[in-house]
Amino acid sequence: MNTSTFRIGVTNDGWQRAIHLEEVWGTVVILEVRAEALPDDVENHLAEVAKFLHQVDDWFSTYRIDTPISALRMGFADLAQMPEVIQKVLEQCNEIRELTGGAFDPWAVPGGVDPSGYVKGWAADVVADLLVEHGLENVSVNAAGDLSCRGLQGPDQAWVVGIRHPFDDQAIIGSAELLNNAMATSGEYERGKHIVNPFTKDRQLNLVSATVVGPDGGLADALATALLIVGLDGVQWFQDFPDWSGFLVDAQTVHTFGPAFADIDAAN
């Protein structure tokens, strides 16, 4: 199943928009482009770029036995035999493992190395950049909740992205403007994700929801999950990343850091 569809409409500001839905990875990835005037063949560009998502599945799916990552997990192949892209992704994962002191650890999950916690956000970034290469400047890619945006959503307006409310699936709990940034949210409510705490080997989490905004989608994806596990102590990882931001929710309180959430008032 990899059906896709699209529609073209006009925003309140008069910009044209086109949306492409790609069913992949057991979910739906949404590609949206906007412009004062979109090219006539925008659908072709969207469909062409969306193919990359299936390429990612061909490399990284742990649900299929015919992928390189599965061969690696099952011990039928070693790292040196992996496609370069997998080697690079695993290198990144290793660096993030060090950065987070092991809170993000694709090697600690049952069943062998699983970089899925990085790949979705990384792929959203690549797709966004591919769309830009196709001449589409204003892009948002929503890879099942991991966002990557380029350009604007309307005249003089950066993309505004809402954060799902962890306790109320009808509401958003906050929002941020993304200017060529990625946003990833990890939440306890995501039952399907089965986040394993690599330290305790159980499912104990220290936040209810963690959102990370920054210029690297894969890193944002991984750090959101790592923060969910470690809690507020994980904010120290961002010491050298002044352009990164976070929106962290525990049972009672919202905590924020960084420029994307700078204008959220602290309140009693």
């Binding site: 199943m1 059906t3 569809t5 839905l21 069913e23 979910t27 739906v28 949404i30 949206e32 948002s140 929503n142 099942a144 909740g145 991991d146 966002l147 959503q153 307006q157 993309w159 505004v160 992205v161 809402g162 954060i163 799902r164 962890p166 699936d169 958003i172 929002s175 946003m183 990833a184 949210t185 990890s186 939440g187 995501e190 929801s209 959102t211």
Partner: peptide, 17 residues
């Protein structure tokens, strides 16, 4: 809210969309 898209919500039904 002028929100273009939402982080943290995954879309599970292609048919719905």
């Amino acid at each position: 809210a002028n929100v273009a898209t939402i982080s943290g919500a995954s879309y599970t039904s292609q048919a719905f969309m």
